[in-house]
Design a protein around this nucleic acid. Structure first.
Lengths: 161, 161
DNA sequence: CTTGACCTTCCCCCAAGGGGCAAGGTTTAA
DNA sequence: TTAAACCTTGCCCCTTGGGGGAAGGTCAAG
């Protein structure tokens, strides 16, 4: 009877690893299943559906946290459609940004490779690939280069010591 | 006399955080600097150059491990150009793959959003965004009772990551 | 009885640092 | 001189989505 799947069988049907299933359980994406007498996890067929839903949503680029929220909303009784719609719109925008960044990056690499062809005869200082090229690389990175590098601790007094 | 920079000053000049500098030191990208009597790290100007090199390479999409290797080769006496060239070519190829994946992903999301417009009047079961769409993943029939299901499921993990 | 496949929990690992803490050093204004 | 303000030190945990593996329990077949 397919009413009792062990974790490996569920994994096979849903196309994931047992590790991933335990991870999903730990992070609240899958509910803890019942256990057999030998402490093995025992799943019903609904777990397969839930896992496929998760895979599908993840395939759309949603994070596990977002998927968990969607499921929670659904459990709460009201359909998560509006929420999902908003999520997907944000994802699409984010994707566009990421695509633009990658295109820029590819262009930079191509330029670097092309520059190498030109300088390979002249012998640059150390490495024209990295040291040459256009002036600044705006490493869309972490710390905003303002004046204070990290002056966050304004209000609170220092640690009582 | 910029012969002795403290970590914050170096960070400011190189456009990174002190945290990142300590991290680079810990992972072997920066050599451990000399210390002042009060155990403060003291850097020379060459550290600024090294850090800028690192940022530039990272801006080209190289990982810190790759950057560390490049630096090691350079320290070894011979210029890392050929190595870097190969690395960049691989990066460019990888980037092309990633771009293709992202384009597919964006298309899927767009389709999902478009499908929503069509079904919003008809009221789907729970969420047409995720549950609708093309079917796939044939469940490999019955789980064999007796043959080992130990197989490498190392396929594509989640969507395009 | 003994493999061997499977299951359990537990802990550490990846990239590239960020956040926070306690303790202590330095600098500056009152 | 002293207190505030800031800087540095090391340390530990957090992030994503699990992978790898150890140590031990369980179940079927040979």
């Amino acid at each position: 009877m397919t009413g009792g799947l062990k974790i490996g069988e569920l994994a096979l049907r849903a196309g994931v690893t047992p590790k991933a299933i335990r991870f999903y359980e730990r992070t609240g994406i899958l509910p803890p299943p019942r256990r057999a007498a030998n402490r093995y996890r025992v799943y019903g067929d609904e777990a397969v559906d839930r896992l496929r839903f998760v895979r599908r949503a993840a395939g759309l680029g949603l994070t596990l946290a977002e998927i968990r929220d969607i499921i929670a909303i659904r459990q709460g009784g009201r359909p998560p459609c509006a929420h999902v719609h908003e999520l997907l719109r944000a994802k699409a925008a984010e994707l566009d940004r990421k695509l633009a960044d990658l295109l820029i990056l590819r262009k930079r690499i191509r330029q670097s490779l092309a520059a190498w062809k030109r300088t390979r005869t002249t012998g640059a200082a150390v490495c024209p690939h990295i040291e040459g090229g256009p002036k600044r690389v705006s490493t869309a990175g972490t710390a905003g280069r303002g004046r204070p590098l990290k002056s966050k601790r304004g209000g609170a007094p220092l640690g009582a010591r």
